[in-house]
């Protein structure tokens, strides 16, 4: 097990190096001259040239890459060209915010999604099942920004129960988590339902039922565990995606996460921020994947870790 984890961690390195190269290339080959954008709308030619030299943008690309990677290995993720602050400092504020939102949203979505999925699969084709299927479809189809704005309109403007955007209270988490988790909740509920149905159709379930096990025992004791593998994969994937930031929700609620930060940086060709933020997102994504893989083995010993 420990050997496996070490192996996996080592195999992450090439992935991260390739990611860093790809992002670096994409950022620097994107149309648009970073120096000109940093200089701003009113700048003159001299302003632009001065900035190009100051940021080392006049060096050949491979040297810029090595300079950047040397910094990264020392823990220096570069300086934002927009705010003139260290990227690592900004990520230290924003990443925990994204993590907090992603974790709560995944937690809510997983608990409710798995619960609803189980309920709905064990009452297949009932009114409840149909209602759940309909709501799940709605959840998948509703764009998060619309849901977010409707939540604000209803809870903040009409009822006045919650603040629109605030960092003061824990309460500020409620609406962002609700609008981010709706989609994941729908995905998880649907996945749980379908994989439960698949498992419930297997012969050994019939066998268990024939042996006189109660319905509850069959569902929770035999079926759920076997259905869990796909569900955990789904939950892991959803969590990984949310760690990349929920751009739209962050915009609507003014949540200081990394999604909006990254998009703004791309628009402003704030190349250091883009490179480093994507690197951090890639890192967190592979770590989540690793954890998911380890969970498989715990749930189903038949999956060998090798």
């Amino acid at each position: 097990m420990i050997k496996y984890i070490c192996k996996r961690v080592i195999s992450l390195l090439p992935v991260l190096i390739v990611v860093s190269m790809l992002v670096f290339l994409v950022v620097h080959l994107m149309p648009g001259d970073p120096a000109r954008i940093i200089a701003g709308e009113m700048a003159t030619e001299e302003d632009v040239e001065r900035i190009r030299t100051a940021y080392g943008l006049d060096l050949p690309l491979y040297r810029q890459y090595f300079n950047y990677m040397r910094g990264v290995l020392k823990g220096d993720l570069g300086t934002s060209t927009r705010t003139h602050r260290a990227v690592s400092e900004e990520l230290a504020i924003r990443f925990p915010k994204t993590f907090q939102l992603a974790l709560w949203a995944t937690f809510v979505a997983a608990v409710l999604g798995v619960g609803i999925g189980i309920l709905s699969s064990s009452m297949r084709y009932s009114v409840l099942d149909n209602v759940v299927s309909f709501l799940a479809l709605l959840g998948l189809a509703t764009p998060p920004f619309y849901l977010g704005l409707m939540c604000i309109l209803f809870f903040c403007v009409n009822l006045g129960w919650l603040p629109i955007s605030s960092d003061v209270a824990r309460i500020a988490l409620i609406l962002p988590v609700a609008s981010v988790s709706a989609r994941s909740l729908a995905v998880i509920a649907r996945m749980t339902r379908s994989s439960m149905l698949e498992v419930l159709g297997q012969d050994y379930i019939m066998m268990a039922k024939a042996q006189g096990f109660s319905n509850r025992k069959v569902v929770f004791g035999c079926a759920l565990k076997n259905a869990m593998t796909t569900v955990i994969t789904t939950i892991g994937l959803q969590f990984g995606v949310l760690l990349g930031g929920a751009v739209v929700t962050e915009k609507v609620f003014g949540w200081p996460g990394i999604g909006d930060y990254l998009v703004t940086a791309i628009k402003a060709r704030d190349f250091m921020v883009v490179q480093s933020t994507v690197l951090v997102i890639a890192l967190s994504y592979v770590i989540v994947n690793l954890i998911v893989d380890l969970l498989y083995a715990l749930i189903n010993p038949k999956i060998k870790l090798s």
Partner: peptide, 18 residues
Amino acid sequence: FRGISEDSSRVMMVKTGD
């Protein structure tokens, strides 16, 4: 001073007094 990039959210904030 705060930055809220979504126009509609900003408008609703002044409506609610946030």
